[in-house]
Amino acid sequence: MKRWLKLIALLLFAPLVYADFNEGTEYQAITNAQPTASADKIEVLELFWYGCPHCYHFEPVLEDWLKNKPDDVVFVRMPAILGPNWELLARGYYTAEFLDAVDKIHKPLFDYIHKERKRISSVDELKTFFVEHGVSASDFDNTFNSFAVITKTNRSKQVRSMYGLTGVPTLVINGKYRTTAKQAGGNEKMLKVVDYLIDKERVAAAGAEAAAE
């Protein structure tokens, strides 16, 4: 009974202001839904590339949204690899992630490339950047060349087949839907579409729970 009441409440109080968001217009269903990092939370996955100016300009908008992220939502970043020259910085992100150094590296690396207009085109240049931001050279070498980082990097090469990705930044909601600023009508609007799809997933999950009673 409680699950039915939860479902009714979600249906009544879901934000009707977003009711005009339509599949095929502001967002797209992913042909083959992908597994997510957490079974009991709704995943919002950001696909990005450090060399992308659109990703750089989206970052502060995304950070504002994350300040009020709902408790039932988990946020995950995934560097996309849509070309050979994207791989180096993707491995850099995963290196920072495994070293628990994303706070030290992520925004500074974006700023270095887009604000300071510098380039990182080799492993040695990337290593120097990490060392300058508090990561030891040995930790960088061991992690950058680790099986775990290489495995994650190889998965990032599959974003076209997994998510139907054609450009970044793209946000994927619960492995089922994707949206972009171009589709939604801007960065802020893209996050409104994300909020709408999060609500859609809440309703679907509540319905499944209620049906299982």
Rank of each mutant, 00 (worst) to 15 (best):
residue 175 G to K: 09
residue 183 Q to S: 12
residue 187 N to D: 14
residue 197 L to R: 10
residue 175 G to I: 04
residue 201 E to W: 09
residue 195 D to R: 01
residue 170 T to F: 03
residue 180 T to Q: 07
residue 185 G to T: 11
residue 169 P to F: 11
residue 176 K to N: 12
residue 189 K to W: 04
residue 174 N to K: 13
residue 194 V to Y: 06
residue 192 K to D: 15
residue 168 V to H: 01
residue 187 N to G: 13
residue 186 G to V: 12
residue 183 Q to W: 00
residue 191 L to S: 02
residue 184 A to N: 05
residue 196 Y to F: 11
residue 184 A to M: 03
residue 180 T to C: 05
residue 186 G to C: 09
residue 199 D to H: 14
residue 169 P to G: 13
residue 188 E to I: 14
residue 198 I to E: 00
residue 179 T to N: 12
residue 187 N to T: 08
residue 187 N to R: 13
residue 184 A to G: 04
residue 180 T to D: 05
residue 195 D to H: 00
residue 179 T to L: 03
residue 202 R to D: 06
residue 195 D to N: 07
residue 191 L to Y: 03
residue 202 R to P: 04
residue 188 E to D: 14
residue 172 V to I: 06
residue 179 T to I: 05
residue 185 G to D: 07
residue 199 D to L: 07
residue 184 A to V: 04
residue 177 Y to I: 03
residue 183 Q to C: 00
residue 186 G to Y: 12
residue 180 T to A: 06
residue 201 E to Y: 12
residue 186 G to E: 09
residue 198 I to V: 15
residue 171 L to P: 04
residue 179 T to D: 05
residue 187 N to A: 15
residue 176 K to P: 04
residue 199 D to W: 14
residue 173 I to G: 09
residue 173 I to Q: 10
residue 199 D to A: 15
residue 195 D to M: 01
residue 194 V to C: 12
residue 181 A to E: 13
residue 174 N to P: 05
residue 192 K to W: 13
